[in-house]
């Protein structure tokens, strides 16, 4: 079902567009597979899928440089794949196996990569916002020009600590980009029923933090806005807010029947605004890629995802001794 919107003019090269297509498709296929493994009982507990929101992380990661950090909530699989973490390690963490990023001890909601400066994966709504500002604080303290992408949802945007953090981030000019992934539903409560302001990013104005709303279904629009935000934060001007209007196709978690919205609403979004279809159309219309080229990419991604599922199924459970490890550090963790 192709998106029928006319394609926009873009400065993005064929190579860039193909990379976005591939990165978004990896997240989509990975999440579909995760949903399938959940259904088979191989993934337990809570599992929050990112399907529909792929353009957000892929667009923003395209603006990051080596040394930048990212932190997010429990809907974190897409962020990990987009920053280059290994799909095998992510999937094996979902299945709670030794080969997972946290050796099976974190699960879907609590995963980290020191190497990729991915600071989690946090299960408490809103808590990752001051944590992200703290990572940015450390960069400013050390005097480098790194920035921290701090992702949270429209639901988290009503937590008090978010505004405590806005205040300090603006006061201390912390190099942090607050990314509000507005998928319109805080679990089952729509923004209209939970949030006094229609434009959440405008709340930043009260703290003197600039920001903007962004079409989160359009990876190129996300990247453009991301570049403005990164330029601002990297040059020492302080925080910037991106309210990225996106949409999750699946329920809040695997056990959410999503009765708070109509199937037509979801289908309309899929048919008309799908972020992956949009890039696919640009690639084909501009003859940057042929159907066969894209089929080859699809096949390659499918293989990567199937391999990650096989790895996640076959990796052993953590040894019983792991119960007692990593409670206390014996030496100071080395800086990444």
């Amino acid at each position: 079902m192709a998106a029928k919107k006319p394609t926009k003019k873009t400065n993005a090269s064929a190579e860039e567009l193909k990379a976005y297509y591939k990165d978004m498709l990896l997240i989509r296929r990975f999440e579909e597979k995760a949903g399938q493994l959940y259904g088979m009982g191989l993934i337990g507990g809570f599992c929050h899928l990112y399907i529909g929101q792929e353009a957000v992380v892929v667009g923003l990661e395209a603006t990051a440089k080596e040394g930048d950090s990212r932190i997010t909530t429990y809907r974190d699989h897409g962020h990990m794949l987009a920053c280059g973490m290994n799909p095998d390690g992510v999937m094996a963490e979902l299945t709670g196996r030794e080969g997972g990023y946290s050796r099976g001890k974190g699960g879907s909601m609590h995963m980290f990569s020191k190497e990729k400066r991915f600071y989690g994966g946090h299960g408490i709504v809103g808590a990752n916002v001051p944590l992200g500002a703290g990572v940015a604080f450390a960069d400013k303290y050390k005097g480098n020009d790194n920035v921290t992408f701090t992702y949270f949802g429209d639901g988290a945007a009503n937590q008090g600590q978010v505004y405590e953090t806005f205040n300090m981030a603006a006061l201390w000019k912390l190099p942090v980009i607050f990314v509000i992934e507005n998928n319109q539903y805080a679990m089952g409560t729509s923004q209209q029923r939970s949030t006094s302001s229609a434009e959440i990013w405008e709340r930043g104005k009260a703290f003197g933090i600039p920001g903007e709303a962004v079409d989160g279904m359009d990876v190129l629009a996300v990247k453009d806005a991301g570049e403005r935000a990164v330029k601002h934060a990297r040059s020492g001007e302080g925080p910037y807010i991106l309210e990225i209007k996106t949409y999750r196709y699946r329920g809040h978690s695997m056990s959410d029947p999503a009765k708070y919205r109509t199937r037509e609403e979801v289908q309309k979004m899929r048919d008309e605004r799908d972020p992956i279809e949009q890039v696919r159309n640009i690639l084909l219309e501009n003859k940057y890629a042929t159907e066969d080229d894209l089929k080859a990419i699809d096949k390659e991604i499918k293989q990567v995802v199937n391999d990650s599922a096989e790895f996640a199924k076959n990796s052993p459970e953590p040894a019983p001794e792991e119960l007692w490890t990593d409670i206390y550090a014996t030496e100071v963790p080395q800086e990444a």
């Binding site: 808590a127 944590l131 500002a133 990572v135 604080f137 450390a138 600590q161 405590e164 990444a336």
Partner: peptide, 25 residues
């Protein structure tokens, strides 16, 4: 730079402190 007055905002500055520790301080 190293002795920092915070606003009265325990939830927020405790979180920023933890984040700074994640970040190597």
């Amino acid at each position: 730079k190293r002795i920092i007055d915070t606003p009265i905002t325990e939830h927020g500055f405790a979180g920023i402190g933890v984040g700074a520790a994640f970040g190597g301080l």
